[in-house]
Write a protein that binds this DNA or RNA. Structure first.
Length: 303
DNA sequence: CTCCAGGTTCCGG
DNA sequence: CCGGAACATGGA
């Protein structure tokens, strides 16, 4: 973030808050890969530090590192981290449920240990609203700008980390201020969604009790939220592990690997195929296919 | 310079 | 209902 956009009037910096403790705890893990989980394009604010990562889980500062089958995390964030990184997921059961084909097997070997995060709902929704037609690195840049300018900042022994600004905070901003965070046309969507939540027209937490179809329909009433982003929030926020977001990469995977003989297939056919073929943990399958295709820049799909 | 990125919305057939 | 275009920004 360079000077040009914040020259005119310097905003008041949020007051740093001292981290509560420097104690760390060790958590044994199996089938967990911290780096792949953090860098697989689900969350966008973790910063590599000291061989691990620093960031916030909601409003809880967290620094975490992995060595083999042991994860070390600051004690104050241990419970949050267990939940956020979904250390309770039964990976053997999930892997057993994957379809047995060459593309899926390759994606599994490549992405093994990646967890589907349980992210706080608003920061997940907001981050994906800003993700439309952006590369992962750009989404991360936007997240960091919004967090550091408008979120609560905490000084930790691993550096400063910031929480995502709450809906009522975003709702006090102008579209121009959001555009100055490089949001482009997404500024209007983020502002409108923040206003809807701050004004009580939608209650993200209350939706946890509803069926996935109901949640999806409610989310899609928000500006800038269509089927893809709604499915990302279902998967990465609400923990609906069968939700299957179809983005440009996954569409590429589906067409090349599973629809090679049906180039005329439309979006509905792709959606219906995905909903059944990949099983009850289709969201996991989707994330593994996405990560594999993206990091090999599509070469994983060549014949 | 051109192309594309974890899409959504609006418009004309 | 369907395909196409507009929408901002920045890295490859």
């Amino acid at each position: 973030l360079k000077g040009s956009s914040i020259t005119a009037k310097r905003r008041r910096a949020p007051r740093p808050i001292e981290a509560t403790t420097s104690d760390e705890v060790a958590i044994p893990v199996k089938e967990f890969n911290l780096q792949r989980t953090i860098e697989s394009g689900q969350a966008f604010h973790w910063v590599p530090v000291n061989g691990g990562y620093a960031g916030c889980i909601g409003r809880t500062p967290c620094w975490i590192t992995q060595r083999g089958t042991s994860v070390r995390v600051n004690a104050a964030a241990a419970n949050s981290a267990r939940d956020y990184f979904a250390l309770d997921h039964d990976m053997r059961q999930i892997y057993r449920s994957f379809p047995d084909d060459t593309v899926m097997r390759a994606a599994l070997e490549f992405s093994r240990g990646t967890r589907i995060l349980r992210q706080p709902l608003w920061e997940c929704l907001a981050a994906f609203i800003t993700s439309a037609l952006k590369q992962v690195a750009h989404i991360a840049a936007i997240s960091h700008t919004l967090r550091s300018r408008y979120g609560e900042t905490f000084e930790t022994e691993w550096g400063a980390v910031s929480a995502y600004p709450a809906p009522d905070r975003i709702a006090t901003l102008t579209e121009r201020e959001l555009r100055n965070c490089a949001l482009g046309f997404r500024a209007r969507s983020l502002l409108g969604s923040a206003e809807a939540i701050a004004g009580g027209r939608i209650d993200l937490e209350a939706l946890r009790l509803r069926e996935s179809d109901e949640i999806r329909a409610e989310l899609q009433k928000l500006p800038g939220v269509g089927p893809k982003i709604a499915n990302c929030v279902l998967l990465f926020g609400y923990g609906r592990l069968d939700a299957f977001p179809i983005d440009v990469w996954i569409e590429r995977v589906l067409r090349l690997a599973y629809f090679a003989d049906k180039p005329e297939a439309n979006a509905v056919e792709l959606r219906e195929f995905s909903a059944t073929y990949f099983g009850p943990y289709g969201g996991y399958a989707q994330q593994y296919l996405f990560h594999h295709a993206r990091l090999t820049r599509g070469r994983s799909l060549e014949p």
